Simulated assay, not measured.
Amino acid sequence: MNEYKYTEYFEKEVLRKRPYLKKEWCIYVIENAVRSEPQERNRYRFWAPVPEFGNRYLRVITLEDKVTIHNAFPDRDFEP
Rank of each mutant, 00 (worst) to 15 (best):
V67P: 01
L58Y: 01
R59Q: 13
K23R: 14
T68I: 06
W25S: 01
N71F: 08
N42G: 11
L58K: 00
N42Y: 08
L15E: 08
P80E: 15
K17T: 14
V60Y: 04
V14I: 15
R43G: 02
I27C: 03
T7L: 03
V50W: 00
I30L: 12
E11T: 12
F73V: 13
G54P: 00
V34D: 10
H70S: 14
N2G: 00
R76G: 15
P74Q: 15
T7H: 06
I30F: 06
I69D: 01
W25Y: 03
F10K: 04
E52D: 14
Y20Q: 08
C26M: 08
E40T: 04
Y57Q: 06
Y6Q: 06
W25N: 04
E3L: 15
P49W: 00
R16C: 12
Y20F: 12
M1W: 09
E52W: 11
F53R: 11
R18T: 05
R59S: 12
E64V: 09
A48C: 07
E52K: 12
F53P: 00
F46G: 02
C26E: 09
Y57M: 02
F10E: 01
V67D: 02
N42F: 10
S36H: 09
V14L: 12
K12C: 04
E64M: 09
P49C: 12
